[in-house]
Amino acid sequence: MTKKVKKIKNSHFGLLLNYLSINTLKAEYNEHALLKGLANNDSKAVETLYKCHFGMIQHFVTNNNGSFDDARDIFQEAMIALYEKVQHESFSLTCQIKTYLFSICKHLWLKRLQQMGKYSSPLNSEEEAISVTSDIEEAAQKDAAFDIMDRALNSLGEPCKGLLEGYYLNKKGMQELADEFGYTNSDNAKNQKYKCLMRLKKLFFAQYNIGD
């Protein structure tokens, strides 16, 4: 089985190299615009990325002991990694988006297979077009922080959770939140928001410091 995984993987790699060689300046320009759109949560950019690259990942995952749903999850993870990477101002992609996404997905998927005990040989980064190890590690750290925040927020209960999500996630104004949650004025809502924030911070740091 291991042999099979490798064989299919390599055939993909060949396809990728092929694709790289016919790379044009025009495509490079489009890619830049695409990443800029991604950084700004442009739904058109996200759609383009899915349309252009998900098929490849679906093919890779389903040919390597995975299901369609696995492919979807893995691609979503890779998209998040790319999204968070382009958030940095210092961001630069030294390769094509396709190469990057494929490398991340391959890495994530083989890691998952390893965890399930379906793929035994160690991951060989030399085989990859680009090394994404540091990116993967960074993404894993962010995953941990995200999970802690998620748990902390969810254990708050209402109205705290809704109030904080409204303010920090959905960027709603204090007056809007006061109306939504039935506070007589925005000052009352603001006071409540800060009380909730203090609780959230306590919960968050209790977990976060253990993680360190």
Binding site: F54, T62, F68, F75, I80, Y83, K142, Y168, L169
Partner: peptide, 30 residues
């Protein structure tokens, strides 16, 4: 960071579902 990821995940998921519903991919398992 949390807010960004949460919002982006939602956007990504919706995009996937819309494309999937439109028949962009046929799920083939294993």
């Amino acid at each position: 960071n949390y807010a960004n990821r949460k919002n982006f995940s939602k956007l990504s998921e919706i995009t996937f579902n819309t494309l999937f519903d439109a028949g962009a991919w046929t799920p083939v398992n294993e």
